[in-house]
């Protein structure tokens, strides 16, 4: 039915491949101490940061896959926002918009200024949450929104009929439509418009954050992660249980989340987002509201 070269998760089978949520993170074959430290060691040895580490994720994931109990060897991408360090500078938004030639309204990663219940303000960036149960995908009448085996929810703009039902369904307002002809894009040689590299955007279709799906396989950091001067954003892999930020800080994902009381935003919508937030300003988890 979906004659696309991308591997797509069939709706019926998504529950089987669903990756565990925070509570059972430790249970999912954590990176062996040696492999994890090995990763760190490599990082220490070479000064190039992110690139090689993510590649290491890949290698260790392969090792894991063969060694552990039938866990998929695929990456299962995740993101963590360490809100303790976010000062709301919007560098992530700008890096993303520049990389994808977006208009200023198309804030694929959007920084909200939030008001905590204790009265403090703090900043919270919202990319696409890459939900494990993505309502945007279920409601898309033509399967233009799909989910890859690595847990990325992408849009095939060549198939999108522009009905915007996905915008209605997304609880995080993460989708942005191209209401008029998109601005001309800076061409990158050898890169063709695709769901992973949706540049330029296509008029009258929907677009959204893709976690720079074109970069991840090459071990490169997404634009927002790389562009954050404060090292707030971590890109991670649930399979290898590791995450890294722009400062080259590598963490063991499950410990990082557990030890810092990480939460997922508006979890009550039941979409199982793949994005975690680490509170630090007296946030009342899900009950805060934006103030601007």
């Amino acid at each position: 039915m979906l004659n696309n070269e991308y591997t797509r998760v069939k709706i019926s089978s998504h529950r089987q491949r669903q990756v565990d949520s925070t509570s059972d993170l430790p249970a999912r074959g954590p990176l062996s101490r040696r492999a994890f430290l090995g990763g760190i060691g490599t990082l220490g040895a070479t000064t190039i940061a992110a690139t090689s580490v993510i590649e290491l994720f890949a290698q260790s994931a392969q090792a894991q896959g063969t060694a552990s109990t039938g866990t998929s060897s695929l990456h299962q991408w995740a993101m963590v926002f360490d809100l303790r360090n976010c000062d709301g500078c919007k560098a992530c938004t700008m890096a993303c918009q520049q990389r994808h030639s977006l208009t200023s309204e198309q804030t694929w990663i959007k920084v909200y200024t939030m008001q905590s219940s204790a009265g403090q303000t703090y900043h919270m960036a919202r990319p696409c949450m890459m939900c494990e149960d993505p309502p945007c995908m279920y409601v898309c009448p033509v399967g233009a929104t799909f989910r890859t085996d690595e847990g990325l929810v992408l849009v095939d703009q060549e198939a999108c009929i522009g009905c915007r039902t996905c915008m209605a369904a997304c609880p995080y307002e993460a989708r942005y439509f191209n209401w008029t002809t998109p601005p001309p894009a800076t061409k990158i040689p050898g890169m063709k418009q695709s769901p992973e590299w949706p540049v330029p955007q296509i008029k009258d279709t929907v677009g959204k954050c893709v976690w720079c799906a074109d970069r991840l396989p090459h071990g490169e950091l997404p634009a927002c992660v790389a562009g954050c001067p404060m090292g707030v954003i971590y890109i991670g892999d649930l399979t290898t249980d590791a995450a890294i930020n722009s400062a080259g800080n590598v963490v063991k994902l499950s410990d990082f989340l557990r030890n810092n009381d990480a939460y997922r935003f508006q979890e009550e919508y039941g979409t199982n987002p793949r994005v975690w937030y680490i509170p630090g300003h007296g946030q009342d988890l899900n009950n805060d509201s934006a103030s601007s």
Binding site: M1, L2, N3, I11, Y138, V139, C140, P141, V142, G143, A159, C160, I161, G162, C163, R164, T165, F177, N178, K203, D204, T205, V206
Partner: peptide, 21 residues
């Protein structure tokens, strides 16, 4: 209502049965 009315027939040849649309 559709942004891409010319792709309307996709509803017939590549429908997503879980979509209320």
């Amino acid at each position: 209502h559709l942004g891409r009315p010319e792709r309307f027939l996709e509803l017939i040849y590549r429908p997503n049965l879980s979509s209320p649309i």
